[in-house]
Nucleic acid binder design. Structure first.
Lengths: 133, 133
DNA sequence: CCGATACTGAGAACCGTTCTCACCACCTGA
DNA sequence: TCAGGTGGTGAGAACGGTTCTCAGTATCGG
């Protein structure tokens, strides 16, 4: 079960490394197809899962239906725009105290956490809320 | 567009209020069918969305594919067992400072956050990791 | 060159959820 | 009492994201 770095996987990894907008698998597929037109969807999904398993990418759940991928594997959190879905990386250090308290209260062995902020991105917060369309 | 509290919706709400294990829509359907055998899946999904819109329930995303529902609508967070999927309520106060910093750094107007802890529930953490099957 | 192993693309299957549709329930007003 | 309107229901189809299946292809080690 030796995983090979095939041209297709290389292409997926390259696309992911060049993307800083937390693309969905579909986005990755579209971008990969610009350089590798024949690539199949299954191949991209498989490659993404492989990269996640290998620690080369993070699979994010930003609240919408589709998973999003991020080649930035260092620990970080996200702010997601509730209007347009844009997501930005942020680093919100959660005091160790909080995790300790959660462990105490719940009896769980706490190994990590996901922190997701909700809000309006700069361009959506200048536009007024009541859509005019 | 006056929403009625039909027997079906009443049944869904009752089940949800009686459940403290963050059931999925499917779980709710199964439980509701014990008292209302003929109820359709669409009706339960519709009722759950209605309750969420009405602020009578929270729709949670605990990391697995299906949405989970919670009649406890007061603000709280969750610890999820990575082994068995069990989820417990916890209340982890996130320092206001953190949200303020995120807003500053990202330029987003931050309106809220979701905080999810990962770990092993008490019964999974006593059982040893290397599955013996 | 050979067999073994891994990978690929296409399309089917899957799963949670929402939609569509024909029918039913309930209210209000004559 | 009935008529019409609004909303709700259940069944099943449709949907969107993802995974699986399968037949064919590439690559590796000898």
């Amino acid at each position: 079960m030796e995983a090979r770095l095939t041209p297709q996987r290389r292409a997926v990894l390259d696309v992911l490394r060049a993307s800083h907008d937390h693309p969905t698998a579909q986005d990755v597929l579209d971008r990969v197809r610009r350089t590798s037109p024949g690539i199949g969807a299954a191949t991209v999904y498989r490659a993404l899962n492989l990269l996640v398993d290998a620690g080369q990418a993070l699979e994010l759940d930003l609240g919408d239906a589709a998973a999003r991928y991020d080649a930035n594997t260092t620990r970080h959190d996200h702010v997601v725009c509730v209007r347009c879905g844009a997501a930005a990386d942020v680093d919100a250090a959660l005091p160790a105290r909080v995790a300790r308290e959660v462990a105490e209260v719940s009896g769980f062995t706490v190994t990590g956490h996901d922190l997701r902020f909700r809000g309006l991105c700069p361009s959506c917060s200048t536009t007024q809320h009541h859509a005019t369309l």
